[in-house]
Amino acid sequence: MTVKKILLVLILTSTQVMAQPPRAVRPMRSPAYPDRPPADPATVERGKALYGVQCNFCHGSDARGGEGGPNLLRSELVLNDQKGELILPVVQNGRGEMPKLNLSAAQVSDIAEFIHSFRVGGYDVSRMTPLSIVVGDAQAGGAVFKTKCASCHSVMGDLKGIASKITDPKILQNTFLMPGGGFSRGRGGVNVPPTTVTVTLASGQKAEGRLVRIDDFMVTLDDAEAGQRTFRRDGDSPKVEIHDPLKPHRDLLPGYTDKEIHDLTSYLVTVK
């Protein structure tokens, strides 16, 4: 009876999981560090104007530090402040190199709301992002291509128009380093052939297919005809040979200089 009940609950639960978008079934949990509730926009605007006049020069227009003044966003005092109550005495009395400023409690409260309107977190979102990663020498990159890539690839053959297919140079760079790897996963548009494995039994009989999983004790392959087959491993028996189509890319990793990588990228972005 109990078991049946548990099963029923499981079935109901899994139905719910299927029926709802993943976000909805995630356990209820507050965010790691909740954002402050949004302040009245008019208050923030007033605070921004006051900040611009009184604070901007030393602490920067984004409160991340400026000419002499520290970053306020990560300051212990500011992080503990709610509505200016901790900031007020510092502003009115000065502190260290900071002069005292003639501002009312209401004005400091407005400034505090402006400072608190910035999102603060350890995974800081980049603001001044670089325009391009392409900095190399295309001609030198052509020479790198000849020595490192040309034994398998050709810009007139399999890589013809590669820069038109992969238009983001960063994805292009990651893709030539490791097709399907990192940032390029699912975005490079490159079909990476699967890793395959050949298992040779003591009888001499061979099984071959896509490598599903392997550890020291088991190997599973997916054979188009027979489906998934698992073989027990006992040391060197049966013989297991893994065919990694990315091995040449893997083998190149230890040998690259960053300049070669950047040059190669500058060359490949011209292969339209």
Partner: peptide, 21 residues
């Protein structure tokens, strides 16, 4: 490096890491 502000980023910000295996 994804943050070129000379003041840097906070915490773990300012970079993108792409694993290559």
């Amino acid at each position: 490096l994804t943050e070129t502000d000379p003041r840097g980023a906070m915490g773990l910000g300012g970079k993108e890491e792409d694993g290559l295996g």
